[in-house]
Nucleic acid binder design. Structure first.
Length: 323
DNA sequence: TCGTGTCAAGTCAAT
DNA sequence: ATTGACTTGACACGA
């Protein structure tokens, strides 16, 4: 028997006016004459985002959803070079504490981050690496501010291929040494849909002792003939052995045959069931992050779709057993 | 209030 | 060498 919890990404299609990603672009910021007022505006936006984030967590609680990806755009321009010295954490301290209170009361809730795709740890460019580390530091501070243990809370892809995949993998290992241990401990790695397959990512995960997030959709889009995810599944699970959080994976469905890599509105329940039948019993618990255009609506629909299967025993709105 | 264009980021394919 | 696609949500602006 395996306990499965479903989660969704950053924003709700049901909760209105609750964006956690409101922003101000640098172009607009730089056009404002009063810099102090502009920074106060940024702080207001950040507070609104964090407040909406808390509203989303409450919405999730009301629907028994205990797994959630936080937006990486909570604090606009936090890592911009022109805002060096801005103590953005201090400015949103009270909002972070509100979230901390919520998470302290609801210790079963798992939150994590997936930084935008320009956070690249295997880049051969020193500036790209430096900016990536800066962004990771922001994620780390936000987690700390929310009272969340940052360990294994941040999903990254391996990065760019740079025309030589083997070299790019070794570049990751090389660059890893420049990432401080506290940031290293925050990271988990995911196979991607164009360059780094399950095997590639597993290689890094095992070498660097970083848990691996298996993305089934990416696997379908990007794997070699010799690869069969079932053969590697035990190794994926083992990368989580020393973690304090359960095994995590990503679930999504192709938009179409033509746009196979793009995310569909909803998750195909038959495909999901096929997957679950293969892995049931191999782990006691697995958290599945649903990456679908319809966000929480896709989660609700999937819960609804799978209840008809006899091996599924619904626990609550976002959680079930498979036997 | 609706649709269209712009904004950020880095990589990569195309020209 | 430069440009545009890719991706995604939000904002600016004009109708």
């Amino acid at each position: 028997m395996t306990l499965v919890r479903l989660g969704y990404v950053a924003m709700s299609v049901h909760l209105e006016n609750a964006s956690p990603s409101k922003t101000m672009t640098y172009t607009r910021f730089s056009k404002l004459d009063d810099r102090d007022a502009a920074i106060r505006k940024l702080e207001q936006i950040a507070e609104t985002n964090l407040h909406n984030c808390l509203r989303l967590l409450r919405h999730n609680l009301a629907h028994d959803i205990a797994f959630f990806r936080l937006s990486s755009k909570l604090v606009p321009l936090a890592t911009h070079p022109d805002l060096k010295g801005w103590d953005y954490i201090q400015s949103v301290q009270s909002s972070l504490e509100e979230i901390q209170k919520f998470l302290t009361r609801n210790t079963n809730v798992r939150v994590d981050f997936h930084p935008d795709h320009f956070v690249l740890l295997n880049s051969p460019g020193p500036d790209v690496l430096k900016n990536s580390i800066k962004s990771l530091r922001m994620h780390y501070r936000l987690l700390q501010g929310m009272g969340v243990n940052p360990e294994h809370r941040c999903v990254l892809h391996v990065g760019g291929g740079y025309g030589d995949k083997e070299k790019a993998l070794e570049q990751f290992i090389h660059n890893w040494a420049f990432v401080s241990p506290d940031l290293q401990s925050m990271i988990i790695l995911e196979n991607d849909d164009k360059v780094f397959t399950l095997s590639d990512t597993l290689y890094l995960s095992e070498k660097l002792a970083v848990p691996m997030v298996f993305d089934y959709h990416h696997y379908l889009a990007n794997h070699t003939e010799s690869e069969n995810w079932r053969e590697d599944w035990e190794r994926v699970v083992q990368t989580w052995d020393s973690s304090t959080v359960p095994v995590k994976m990503h679930i999504s469905s192709p938009k179409s045959d033509k746009q196979f890599r793009a995310h569909s509105d909803y998750v195909d329940s038959a495909m999901f069931m096929d997957f679950l039948r293969e892995i049931k019993g191999t782990v006691s618990q697995i958290d599945c992050m649903i990456e679908a255009k319809q966000k929480d609506a896709a989660l609700f629909k999937l819960m609804d779709d799978i209840q008809k299967y006899p091996e599924i025993e619904i626990v609550d709105g976002g959680c079930f057993h498979i036997t």
